[in-house]
Simulated assay, not measured.
Amino acid sequence: MRLNFKGLSLIELLIAVSIVSLLAAVAYPAYIGHMRASHRAQAKEHLFQLQLKQEAWRLSNNSYTASVADLGAASDAHYTYRVTNASLSTYTLNAIAIAEGIQSDDEGCTSLQLDQSDNREPAHCW
């Protein structure tokens, strides 16, 4: 005797949907974690570029600038960049996560700092 199957039963469909849902529930948080790490790496790279520009500024002007605009930097989609504590011999570069983005949930790494002595804060984010 030969049986003719013309589709999926409701049970088979429910099993397939539950497997796909389970895979998505595991994959999405991992994906978001990788995206946060990638954006943080881009912010660190940007801070290093700003550090080089800050040192070049000092060679030309005998002091560090307090303006990120003087360094030719702008905010990106995930971080805002600032210069604080600028003087003749010191500066601190800051990358601050934008509140509406996924970086705002980056535990302990929403604000990255780099200074003239290459001190990096918070240490666990570098």
Rank of each mutant, 00 (worst) to 15 (best):
A27R: 01
Y28G: 00
P29T: 03
A30D: 02
Y31L: 11
M35I: 11
A37C: 01
A37L: 12
S38L: 10
H39G: 00
R40F: 00
A41G: 12
A41E: 12
Q42P: 00
A43Q: 07
E45L: 11
E45F: 04
Q51A: 14
K53H: 12
K53M: 10
Q54E: 14
Q54C: 02
N61L: 02
S63Q: 14
S63D: 11
T65D: 10
V68A: 15
A69T: 12
L71E: 02
L71R: 00
G72E: 05
A73K: 02
A73W: 05
A74T: 14
S75N: 15
A77W: 06
H78L: 03
Y79W: 04
T84M: 02
S89I: 07
S89M: 03
T90R: 03
Y91L: 02
T92Y: 06
T92F: 06
T92D: 05
L93A: 12
L93Y: 08
N94W: 06
I98M: 12
A99D: 10
G101R: 08
G101C: 02
G101N: 06
S104L: 00
D106E: 11
T110W: 01
S111M: 12
S111V: 15
L112Q: 05
L112E: 05
Q113G: 00
Q113N: 06
D115V: 07
Q116S: 11
Q116H: 13
S117L: 12
